[in-house]
Amino acid sequence: MFIINCPFCGERDQSEFSAGGEAHIVRPKQPTELSDDEWADFLFMRKNIKGIQFERWNHAHGCRKWFNVIRDTSNDKIHAVYKMGEKPPSI
């Protein structure tokens, strides 16, 4: 079980958080102009990387804030956390 450093509350147990999948997938501003394939790409296609992955997490049983996490899925090491809208820090 991880310890996640919530950018708003500090270090907390993983049980307080819920995972929200891959980060930096922006909802298209003009969905109607997308082809079926392009929309399906946004809707369904997610990476499943062994290694460094950018993820969304929600401090569900805490401040309820969403934020981003850079995690190595091969060993669960969290390299960085950063707020929504911020650029990912270089690691």
């Binding site: 819920s18 929200g20 969304r56 929600n58 569900a60 309820r64 804030k65 969403w66 929504m84």
Partner: peptide, 9 residues
């Protein structure tokens, strides 16, 4: 939580 997700992200 879904609504919060859209609002925040």
């Amino acid at each position: 939580s879904k609504l919060e997700d859209y609002l925040q992200t």
